[in-house]
């Protein structure tokens, strides 16, 4: 590991974090605007042109907000929890290649379109998200409030359960691509996106991904009407913003992974747009689906949610995996 690689990675990390934070900010606005349009109203439009400065105002306000916290909290863990959440969220983006196939040549260096190209690929993503559970759980535990605790218990149970389905739904892709590296997977989709042969797996992944990020209709951990605000009930100001940020960044990441794994990453038909734009378009489309679902569907009940994971998604993804394996082996003619 030479110095210039370190410097390059650091620079890329800074860029990615900056982009993610901006993305988070505008994702909130995007969500509010898109939802508003579906409800026949304009949405935020006063702060800046078309409300474009709304995220800035929100951020500014939250940043300068004093914090109010329960006196019976566990002080150390209360501080630690949002940091774990946001770090896990930011770290998972490191493996996402946003364009390719060649590297970017800049100042005589060839720079990949990713922070790092680890050879365990998607496993990195699973590893990091599984650490993210602690952020949510500790938030609930440290707040020492029943609503937070219930929200945290629900949330972590939900995330752990759906991680199984999430992981298994990607296995068919690994079988087809023959690799777990993101770049290899995308390159394998040069002609056909995997969403075509693996449509059921795509839907399984999407459902599991929405549940994994605790979004509607699976937003039970923070189901406002039951648990006030779930695990972050007792958080305020900037620390609350960190949870908010983590949630939205996780949405971006789930969409990015789906784009890479199923929707052909930076490959677009006819080559009209450069790679990063295709990537962006697909991610935004998936985020639109997120918002759309939230605007439409009722929330599921908690026990049904767990049942859906263990009784439907999990067996279905196993079956999908087996079917894919059999088909691939049969096609290779080695059966």
């Amino acid at each position: 590991m030479t110095l210039d690689v370190v410097v390059e990675t650091l620079i890329k990390a800074v860029i990615v974090i900056g982009a993610l934070l901006t993305g988070f900010a505008y994702l909130t606005l995007f969500e509010r605007k898109v939802q508003a349009r579906m409800q026949q109203r304009p949405g935020p439009n006063r702060v800046g042109p078309w409300g474009l400065l709304q995220p800035a105002a929100d951020g500014l306000k939250l940043f300068f907000k004093s914090s109010s916290a329960p006196s019976s909290r566990d002080r150390f863990l209360y501080l630690l929890a949002p940091m774990i959440s946001i770090m896990a969220a930011l770290a998972s983006f490191a493996i996402i290649p946003i364009s390719g196939p060649g590297a970017l040549n800049l100042f005589g260096h060839s720079i990949g379109w990713y922070v790092m190209n680890v050879n365990i690929g998607v496993l990195w993503y699973f590893a990091v998200t599984s650490v993210g559970v602690y952020g949510i759980f500790l938030a609930g535990y440290a707040s020492n409030s029943k609503y937070s605790m219930l929200g945290a218990l629900r949330s972590s149970a939900q995330m752990i359960s759906y991680e199984m389905a999430l992981g298994l739904s990607l296995v068919p892709v690994f079988i087809l691509a023959g690799s777990v590296r993101m770049v290899d997977i995308v390159n394998a989709q040069h002609t056909w996106w995997f969403v075509l042969p693996l449509l059921p797996a795509f839907f399984l992944y999407l459902i599991a991904g929405i549940a994994e990020t605790n979004r509607a209709p699976f937003d039970l951990p923070e189901a406002e009407t039951e648990l006030v605000a779930g695990y972050h009930t007792e958080y305020s100001g900037l620390r609350f913003a960190l949870f908010f940020m983590a949630e939205y960044i996780n949405m971006i990441i789930v969409s990015s992974v789906a784009t890479i794994v199923f929707l052909g990453g930076w490959w677009g038909p006819f080559g009209i747009l450069p790679g990063p734009w295709w990537f962006l378009v697909k991610v935004v489309a998936l985020l639109y689906v997120y918002v759309w679902l939230r605007a439409t569907l009722p929330r599921m009940r908690y026990d049904r949610l767990m049942a859906l994971s263990w009784k439907s998604l999990f067996p279905l993804s196993l079956a999908m995996m087996m079917v894919t394996a059999v088909v691939v082996v049969a096609a290779q003619g080695t059966l």
């Binding site: 939802q35 409800q39 026949q40 509607a216 009407t225 939230r294 439409t296 569907l297 009722p298 929330r299």
Partner: peptide, 16 residues
């Protein structure tokens, strides 16, 4: 009641 169960748009349509 829809909003309680998470139907966000329903609330707005109802108000419209």
């Amino acid at each position: 009641a829809g909003l309680d169960l998470g139907v966000y748009s329903g609330f707005f349509y109802a108000w419209r």
